[in-house]
Design a binder for these strands. Structure first.
Length: 545
RNA sequence: GGCCCGUUGGUGAAGUGGUUGAACACACAUGCCUUUCACGCAUGCAUUCAUGGGUUCAAAUCCCGUACGGGUCACCA
């Protein structure tokens, strides 16, 4: 039997050979510097902050070099797969407004972009390796493997399938054929040419040079389910898809020597690598990787629900990804992420603690810079999904709401109170009669002079007053009820007055909004209008009885 | 345990041998301003860069050891 026939016996039913695939996926027509990147998640759950972070780097590097970002689903472990996992990932990205150049449902000429659909491709390359005597069948059972592991532990030897521990490695072709004919189960392993005592130096775009021993493990490349392991699929896919830059989590650096060897054995050119540090979270005294199950705020759906836009998340990710981004953005507030040039060597090397405070702060700045009409559109869209009652009010009072949202907005330093669309109701609900008369709760402990309030609105307040006139009228009113017209005067001799002008404003504010803290009172009154102010003061009076 | 990587304030960090008295941003604290909150302004927050040693005229920056933290050692990715 020739080696070719041998490989066909071991890996049956493969339609094409490697030459077919090499021709089918020709080199990409790239200009110098254009990067082809790929984000390669397993469909084991939905997209979360950690994966978003990794994909952000892929997307950004491809876009700024005018290259290509692919989405590739790594579903060679069918046991772990979640129902609708692939759809879930694709939809999450689409909902976030994130588009890849290539990938499932994104198109592209180098697909399929789902590994479970690429079985034949991998098998063709496995066959090639067997033919060249660079891979061999292994008939060891899980029990046998377990046993050698125990012995290795006992002897304090390195654990794994290598050297003399690799029993099946020395099997002759005839012995192997015999076993196959007897129906023995097998998988395919790499015949590692490496020597543990040799060192390989691998260059990482982020971490710099990393030196480690050569791989000498005869790792599994084709599993009993006829699908490849990650390592093998990685080499074949990134070769065939012509990835120029492999950007992945740094949990992969420890198996990097395996990948390096695989590329060499397969005769592939190695892409450049960038291993990004994980997003971490502090738990007690320890730090751990972000987890979707333990950290609810890690799921992207969390941001969706709160109404934190993708732009904000991107800004945050940009901030932690490139140390110089933040100060650049501060100096160029009119520019965006697309105008900034990200560099691998500016990426964090150790783990990055996820800081929700920082994200919220970025969000507040983002919202404060939004035009009222744009904010309105956003809230409208958000509430349609999460708060229908408010949504209806917004539709009904469009112009009014835009005016309300514009209070203290078009000024050099706008308010920074809104951090998510869900906050908008919290800050504006009292401006709607439908909500005010239903939900206003007054603190009845504190007594306010209702007579003063009525006097004020009936005899002093005028909708057409300028802000200065408005304020002067309150000053005018103050002495009549024993209040100090000037804050300073009150501070100097508090015993001479019932209160200061600030207390009058507080009374008006509470009566009209039920709150002690609101944006500019003058603007609020103006938007409410005299009639509604009167109604509210009456309501306030009733509530205090 | 083996092999990798990391360690600058509450957080993210700047920094690659000498204008660093260790930027900047977030957070926090105090005060001022003020119709509230916010904004703004002012001030405070690492006598020191995990630690011990070495190289050097000079070290957060280079070298070695130690401690601590993280990753990884599957027919999982």
């Amino acid at each position: 039997m020739t080696r070719k026939e041998y490989s066909e016996l071991l890996v049956p039913n493969v339609e094409h050979d490697v030459n077919y695939y090499e021709e089918k996926y020709p080199k990409r027509d790239l200009k110098v510097g254009e990067m082809v990147t790929r984000f390669a998640p397993s469909p084991t759950g939905f997209v979360h902050m950690g994966s978003l972070y990794a994909s952000f780097v892929d997307l950004v590097m491809a876009r700024q070099t005018n290259g290509i970002a692919m989405l590739r689903i790594e579903d060679t472990d069918q046991k772990r797969e979640v129902e609708n996992g692939i759809e879930g990932i694709v939809n999450d990205f689409k909902n976030l407004g994130i588009n890849f150049n290539e990938g499932p449902s994104f198109g592209g000429n180098y697909g399929p972009y789902v590994q479970s659909e690429r079985g034949d491709i991998y098998r063709a390359y496995v066959r090639k390796l067997i033919e060249e005597d660079k891979a061999y069948p292994c008939f060891c059972t899980p029990e046998e493997l377990e046993e050698t592991r125990n012995i290795q532990e006992l002897e304090k030897a390195r654990i794994g399938y290598y050297g003399t521990w690799a029993k099946c490695r020395s099997l002759t072709m005839e012995e192997a054929i015999e076993k196959v004919k007897n129906g023995e189960k097998y998988i395919i392993r790499l015949k590692s040419p490496g020597n543990f005592n040799n060192k390989v130096v691998l260059h990482d775009l982020i971490k710099g040079n990393i030196e480690m021993p050569e791989n000498d493990m005869d790792i599994v490349i084709l599993k009993s389910d006829n699908l490849p392991t990650y390592h093998f699929a990685h080499a074949v896919d990134d070769h065939l898809m012509h990835t120029t830059n492999v950007i992945r989590g740094d949990e992969w650096v420890s198996s990097w020597n395996v990948h390096e060897q695989l590329f060499k054995v397969l005769g592939f050119e190695m892409p450049a690598y960038a291993h990004i540090s994980p997003l971490t979270v502090k738990e007690g005294n320890t730090v751990r990787k972000i987890s979707k199950r333990k950290d609810p705020w890690a799921a992207v759906s969390y941001y969706h629900q709160k109404g934190i836009p993708t732009e904000v998340i991107d800004l945050y990710l940009a901030t932690i990804n490139n140390s110089t981004f933040e100060s650049w953005y501060l100096q160029n507030p009119d520019k965006g992420i697309n105008d900034f040039e990200f560099e691998f060597d500016k990426c964090p090397i150790g783990g990055t603690l996820f800081d929700i405070q920082k994200l919220i702060s970025i969000s507040k700045v983002y919202f404060s810079a939004l035009k009222a009409s744009k904010l309105y559109e956003g809230v409208l869209e958000y509430t349609e999904k999460y708060d229908l009652e408010f949504h209806e009010l917004l539709k009904k009072y469009k112009e009014y709401m835009i005016n309300v949202l514009n209070i203290e907005r078009e000024i050099p330093r706008p308010r920074r109170d809104i951090s998510a669309y869900e906050d908008v109701r919290k800050f504006t609900w009292y401006m709607f009669d439908e909500l005010y008369f239903k939900e206003a709760k007054f603190n009845l402990e504190k007594k306010y002079n209702i007579e003063l309030l009525k006097d004020y609105v009936n005899n002093y307040y005028n909708e057409s007053d300028s802000k200065e006139e408005w304020f002067n009228k309150i000053k005018e009113l103050a002495p009549k009820y024993g209040y100090a017209a000037e804050t300073k005067a009150y501070k100097q001799e508090p015993e001479k007055y019932v209160g200061s002008i600030g207390d009058i404003c507080e009374a008006i504010r509470v009566a009209v909004t039920s709150l002690t803290m609101t944006p500019d009172l003058y603007e609020i009154l103006k938007n409410l209008g005299k009639e509604r102010i009167i109604k509210r003061i009456n309501f306030f009076e009733e509530s205090n009885k």
